[in-house]
């Protein structure tokens, strides 16, 4: 992905030199032209066309913000409610992510999700131990994490 972005900027610079006009707007024009060129030549790269990754990153950012707001609402509900009748506890979650930065991102996302907080990552990086505010629906939470977060992170690193 980084290689394609570098190549795209290089094409934009070459476009600027061809035009002999060194302004931001000619850089942008060259960048858009480079996007078309790279899209046309996408079968020569090992990885897919990098605009898909950019879209995946933006999606992940939106998920981050949405989860932050939802988690705040759920924590507020627990704090404000007159009786403390939640059932906290620690559950484990197997993850299929492999690289370190992916696991860090997943842990950050889980910490910002409604009612969950990562306590430890096992030594072999395969299991996350998560403290949950309310354990009634652990299976549901596991399912949600797998469905939404892991998928979104995998989409970014593909």
């Amino acid at each position: 992905m980084a290689f394609q972005i570098l190549l795209n900027s290089l094409i934009a610079f070459i476009w600027m030199f061809l035009q002999n006009s060194y302004t931001a707007s000619s850089f942008v024009v060259g960048y858009v032209l480079g996007l078309f060129i790279i899209f046309a030549l996408r079968r020569f790269f090992h990885r897919r066309f990098y605009l898909y990754n950019v879209i995946a990153v933006i999606k992940l950012l939106l998920i981050f913000i949405k989860e932050l707001i939802l988690s705040n609402l759920s924590v507020l509900k627990v704090i404000i409610s007159p009786k403390l009748n939640m059932k906290p506890g620690i559950f484990s979650l197997e993850t299929t992510l492999e690289k370190d930065w992916e696991i860090t991102l997943l842990a950050n996302l889980i910490t910002l999700t409604p009612g969950t907080l990562v306590i430890d990552v096992s030594d072999d990086n395969k299991t996350l131990f998560i403290h949950a505010m309310d354990l009634d629906d652990v299976e549901q939470a596991r399912q949600d994490i797998r469905e939404s977060f892991e998928k979104a992170i995998k989409e970014v690193s593909r």
Partner: peptide
């Protein structure tokens, strides 16, 4: 304000951490 109330009200370190780190 609500998160500081949560820090006072919740029973143990972990649940307090929920309130502190999110709200």
């Amino acid at each position: 304000l609500i998160s500081s109330i949560g820090i006072l009200r919740l029973p143990d370190v972990y649940t307090r951490n929920h309130a502190a780190s999110k709200a």
